[in-house]
Design a protein around this nucleic acid. Structure first.
Lengths: 291, 291
DNA sequence: CTATATCTGAAAATATATTTTCAAAAATAA
DNA sequence: TTATTTTTGAAAATATATTTTCAGATATAG
């Protein structure tokens, strides 16, 4: 009978407004007023807000072609979801090049979604605090990664090293870590990367470091490494992609953003260091030869 | 007890994320995923979507400081109402957390834009060809990076090594490279990373390798490394961000996408290798100790 | 005005949602 | 490993939500 299964609630109301009774119209107007949020509570709540009885609400839902009030509400939910979930940045951007099912597209969508989710979840206070800690020249910094995240620690180290002194990249091999811990002093900062397949050694390291008064910063995934319980600040990123492995793209994004933030904090000293570094590179280049 | 009566659900989740248990984290992630719409259904619906039990949902609501699930949902309703009725903050997915000019936001926007540009520009034919080449077990693979891109080469190597044999990560120090070239045979693949501040040594390496019949794959930036002229396939990514350095986020995305593509190509052999690797890890773990 | 059809909401009946309880499972400590 | 604690979800208990019933209210026609 209803060919209009996919009409919005608002459309159905407008379409059938003439057939509605007095109490129903009152309800309809109220629902359209703060649409669609006003229809989100229980039938009782909706009825009260509109000043009608619950049966009226149930009846109108039927009249509009739904099985009942819950069905109408479900429709409102999905409309809301469609509205809220980003209008601009989906799909359309690269589709022209690769067919819809191409791994490049699927991967890209997953990564973009990971970015969004991560950004929504990130705690700016933590982020700022991390940048602050890493900008403090009195604190030495130690970076460490696991089997997969090693490259993140490496990247982090490479850039931090340019901006300040007292930065150490810990060897990936955990049986060398005791020596690093030996050098850590209270207030120093340990930056660790630990994602799914969490490494037990990192957990132990965090515990030991923490017990010696070291500030522990953790880059981990959405589920959170167990080492999180020792972390002063945790930066979680989404890592799931259509692959047998996890994606570190968003983690890298966070690392680079932190680096940029630190650079902002310390720009006065950093810019001189960078200049000197450039000069050093130029000089050494002149000595190098290949084959 | 809670001075934080007026925190959003999302904020409360973030604040207490560390205190949440496994099932609760799973739920929390699901709720943040389509926030706040995902938390709008009945407790049963929310539980089912997240794959946890209803008591878990009720418990978490309590843990976050609400009287119960209905109270939490009421809070979601009012948040939603505030969001919807305020056209300004609409759809800005992370804006709620950090003010508009926060480095995190600016960085994110730049990276997203880089992704889009890169994807629009990428040549799927090149991409596929690269995946094909790297999946060919008869070709040995050599990976090399520069000062900044070293971590990309490292990441690439770590994953390729799992999928197949005959993969070599070249030391970053260019005066060791001659030895690697000595081992390269015709048809082998050299994968190099070279971005702005292009390194002269990479150019020379590419030239020499090419002259010996080695297939050269280059990951570079939007402007293209000079080594590009020796490249069989070039994968360019946008790297500009509001920072003194360039961003490797999109480069990493391409690397991971290539890895995923290779994995697809070689899944039959790869899955066995991965299984064996897992077993090896389990075994070696038993021998390890820290401090 | 009265007769009749329609609408409406209080209250009962029913269906769902939510919380509580508790034993099994999982994690952690010893 | 084994003991202990914590976490978890199935099922029962409870609380709410939703629908149905039906008598009174309201509108409409004659």
């Amino acid at each position: 009978m209803d060919d209009a299964e996919n009409l919005t609630v608002a459309e159905r109301i407008r379409q059938q407004f003439e057939d509605l009774t007095r109490a129903e119209r009152q309800l309809a107007n109220c629902m359209l007023e703060d649409y669609p949020v006003s229809g989100l509570g229980s039938i009782t709540a909706v009825a009260e807000t509109s000043g009608v009885s619950t049966p009226t609400v149930a009846r109108m839902a039927r009249k509009l072609g739904f099985g009942g009030f819950p069905q109408m509400q479900a429709q409102l939910h999905s409309e809301l979801k469609a509205t809220i979930s980003n209008p601009i940045n989906k799909h359309d951007l690269w589709a022209e090049n690769a067919p819809g099912t191409h791994i490049l597209n699927r991967f890209a969508e997953a990564v973009m979604e990971n970015m969004r989710q991560t950004l929504r979840q990130i705690n700016p206070t933590d982020f700022n605090a991390v940048a602050q800690l890493l900008s403090d020249p009195k604190r030495d910094i130690y970076a460490v990664g696991g089997r997969i995240t090693r490259s993140m620690a490496d990247h982090f180290f490479t850039h931090m090293q340019v901006m300040r002194s007292g930065v150490t990249l810990m060897a990936p091999n955990s049986n060398t870590w005791a020596h690093y811990v030996l050098n850590m002093k209270e207030g120093d900062v340990l930056v660790a990367f630990d994602i799914r397949r969490y490494e037990h050694d990192i957990l132990r390291l965090a515990e030991v470091a923490k017990s010696r008064g070291v500030t522990f910063i953790l880059f981990t995934d959405q589920w959170g490494s167990p080492a999180g319980k020792f972390a002063t600040h945790s930066l979680n990123s989404r890592i799931e992609v259509p692959s047998a492995w996890d994606s570190l793209v968003v983690t890298l994004f966070l690392v680079e953003a932190v680096i940029a933030a630190v650079q902002n904090e310390t720009w006065d000293e950093t810019k001189d260091r960078m200049k000197i570094l450039e000069e050093l590179f130029d000089q050494t280049k002149m000595f190098k030869k290949f084959i």
